[in-house]
């Protein structure tokens, strides 16, 4: 699952607030949270990205995993 965009926005806001008083430990920790959430969002996106080849698309693969007997999913390895 991916973090919600609102959660990232909120984290950025928190970080900007906690850094108003200069570079402290809280400031660094707050920006670290932003980084962690952005990285998690980027990873989730990379995992869900559909391929440009329609037959290699993740949705097709998932469909075929569930319904291997459907005509569009049959592969004969002979």
């Amino acid at each position: 699952s991916a973090p919600k965009p609102e959660a990232i926005e909120q984290a950025v806001k928190d970080a900007e607030e906690s850094c108003a008083g200069g570079a402290t430990g809280e400031c660094a920790a707050a920006w670290d949270t932003v980084e962690e959430l952005s990285a998690a969002a980027a990873h989730a996106k990379a995992n869900s990205k559909s391929s440009t080849d329609p037959l290699e698309d993740k949705r097709v693969n998932e469909y075929c995993e569930d319904n291997p007997a459907e005509p569009e999913c049959r592969v004969y390895d002979d």
């Binding site: 570079a23 400031c27 660094a28 920006w31 980084e35």
Partner: peptide, 27 residues
């Protein structure tokens, strides 16, 4: 790379990316 990752996607500003890198840099 972080501009490419975060700015287009999540609408972070240039300042926030810069601030994030700066804040984590000492550690």
């Amino acid at each position: 790379w972080k501009i490419q990752r975060d700015m287009a996607e999540r609408g972070h500003s240039l300042e926030s990316i810069k601030a994030s890198i700066e804040a984590r840099k000492p550690d």
